[in-house]
Design a protein around this nucleic acid. Structure first.
Lengths: 118, 118
DNA sequence: AACGCAATTCGATATTTCTTGAAATATCGT
DNA sequence: ACGATATTTCAAGAAATATCGAATTGCGTT
């Protein structure tokens, strides 16, 4: 049943608004942001935002925690990494003769100086 | 316009049949597989397969090459890695104080012994 | 308890995506 | 050129997803 979860996660990310929201949260780190601030940054009405955050949450890509009146959302980094792992699993059949095509791109670059190019 | 391309790629992968097809191709390596064989393995009619492969191709995730009467499809590993990079870009704002949450999972495991568990 | 603020649920509409048979195109062998 | 094989294109109905205003719930303050 891993495939189904993965499809959910990919589908959750496959949308302008949600991708933007998710990336915002990835860049914000474990503390996350309150829904209202996300809605404001994305320029969409609250009810629309809720709809999209729920898809991300249902897919396990973001977590939710209440702080007083606000609901903070944060990226779930383990889920994100799990998703990536699933996509690339057993690349080239695990053959060592595969060449450099399976080489990872060093995802998630905390040790590097800021780079915004990709 | 990088966001739009990413949404396309994620959308292309966010479907049962297409995810299965893509993973099949990832595991098959650079040589890929002819359309007919993919359709057979997935158990779907040819016209349906074409529809899905086109989405993957349009998103740049697979390439196409003709060999006699057959059309071979293969995963585009650079595109896949670019997608992952975009998702995780500037994780935690690039702060070194972020902790282990941005740590990559060592995607693409070509040095492991064969495992077919998924 | 009453008020205000933050966010969600509901509902109805609009839009997009999926599916697959039938017909068309491309390539090969004879 | 003809027939067979491999795959794509077309069309249109079916299914899933997106949008957002109005009403509602949860929480804190007075």
């Amino acid at each position: 049943m891993k495939a189904k979860e993965t499809v959910d996660a990919l589908g959750a990310l496959a949308h302008d608004t949600r991708l933007e929201a998710f990336r915002l949260l990835v860049q914000k780190g474990p503390d996350g942001l309150p829904a209202g601030m996300i809605a404001e940054k994305l320029g969409i009405p609250p009810s629309s935002l809720t709809f999209h955050l729920q898809q991300l949450a249902h897919a396990g890509l973001v977590t939710q925690r209440r702080v007083s009146r606000q609901l903070f959302y944060a990226a779930d980094f383990a889920a994100m990494n799990g998703l990536v792992a699933y996509l690339t699993e057993n690349c080239c059949g695990g053959e060592t003769a595969c060449g450099p095509v399976c080489e990872p791109v060093k995802i998630a670059i905390k040790s590097q100086p800021k780079r915004r190019s990709a």
